[in-house]
């Protein structure tokens, strides 16, 4: 279960005052404290083009990301496959990333946990948490980390949508219920797929449109999704 501490962090992330902006940096420090690590950062982008850090850019996280991009190896690269890469002791994993591990150690990083920022096939980047001392994230910290990754994913999706369409329905930032787990109902994801085919847009945009529609109509996202799946509601272009 998600801790009180992390629940506070997630609420702060979606704070009204931060709408449209990158997640506030002070919250990254609070997130790191809640997870029991020394730093947390989030980067946009997948694949060989590397990531652009958009949250928690301290000197160490910037250097870590530069290293992984330059060397083409490291947990932050491997997370692209879609599964979390949790390395409680980098030294013990030196065989997997032979060049990265000693370089990370030189930065004082001995444990690195990389989580995909992902909702099904929507893949926006990665969340990375590092620590100077080896040691695993315990079960509670892991739950917190997954919840944080989901919240950051949604926040970044909304931020991207708002940047692409400043006057659009998503520009108000994440909606009040934004930190509710989206993975709760299968129909939400089915509707996302249907809307993406209806509008000819990416799944990421379809999900944002679905959430924005629910917000504007003041309905639950699950209800709107049920209407889409039952074909009582169709999304169309240029009619907001």
């Amino acid at each position: 279960m998600v801790s009180e501490r992390m629940a506070v962090v997630i609420t702060l992330l979606g704070d009204d005052r931060q709408r449209g902006a990158n997640p506030p940096p002070t919250v990254a420090a609070q997130a790191a404290a809640a997870l029991g690590v020394d730093g947390v950062c989030a980067g946009l982008g997948t694949g060989s083009s590397g990531q652009v850090l958009v949250w928690g850019q301290d000197a160490t996280s910037i250097a870590l990301e530069d290293l992984q991009f330059t060397l083409g190896q490291g947990p932050g690269m491997d997370v692209d496959a879609g599964a979390p890469v949790l390395v409680s002791d980098l030294e013990a994993a030196a065989a997997r990333w032979p060049v990265f591990v000693p370089a990370a150690a030189a930065l004082g990083v001995r444990a690195l946990f990389a989580l995909p920022l992902r909702i099904g096939a929507i893949h926006v980047g990665a969340l990375q948490a590092y620590r100077a001392n080896p040691g695993s994230l315990d079960g509670a910290a892991l739950s917190d980390a997954f919840a944080l990754a989901e919240a950051v994913t949604l926040l970044l999706l909304h931020r991207q949508a708002a940047a692409a369409d400043p006057g659009g329905a998503a520009s108000g930032g994440p909606q009040p219920d934004w930190s509710q787990p989206v993975t709760f109902r299968a129909q939400v994801h089915q509707a996302t797929g249907m809307i993406s085919a209806q509008l000819g847009v990416t799944l990421a945009e379809a999900l944002v449109r679905l959430r924005a529609h629910a917000y504007v109509e003041d309905r639950l996202i699950a209800e709107v999704a049920a209407d889409v799946v039952a074909r009582r509601l169709r999304f169309e272009n240029d009619k907001r």
Binding site: A83, L86, A191, T192
Partner: peptide, 29 residues
């Protein structure tokens, strides 16, 4: 290890979400 289990479990849950999204795309198309 707990970490590996958590990682696999998370991956299975994400894969399921992907399947729901694909069902939607296919149903519509």
């Amino acid at each position: 290890q707990a970490e590996l289990l958590a990682s696999q479990l998370q991956n299975a849950l994400s894969s399921r979400v992907t399947i729901e999204q694909a069902k939607g795309v296919l149903a519509e198309r």
